[in-house]
Amino acid sequence: MSNADARRLARELAEPHLQRLADDLPGVRAAILASSDGFELVSVTVTELPLSQLSAMASAMQGLGDALARETGLERSRDIIVDSDLGKVVLMSIPGGPPPLVLMVVVTDQSPFGQLLLQCRNCCVAIGNDLKNRTSMPASIAS
């Protein structure tokens, strides 16, 4: 499978899950699936945001989280939550890789925290399962 095909597959598989998340969860501004090296693969947005830049930031944060967890003997980082004045940003690793992917969800303070975490995690698991089922996905996913 070529890089372009793999990218299309990730987009095709993940987009319905991102859309469902945006539809079901109150206050979603954006849901982005990015490669671990910072490329936007697919996104669903309610508000205009700089998606390429956010994808790079998601991978950098995930990289820092992994390093922090490793250095403190906590193994791999799974989630990072940025709790800010007007909302939250959640970063979650998609389980079951490769390829390593990260989900970034930006929400306003309309989103209840427990529901946010639960639905983001469900979304990650669903994407991970779909990718696993359609496997033979190469590590390289960007064209």
Binding site: N3, F39, S140
Partner: peptide
Amino acid sequence: TEALNSDRL
């Protein structure tokens, strides 16, 4: 903080 490079081109 290394990640797999998906932009091998």
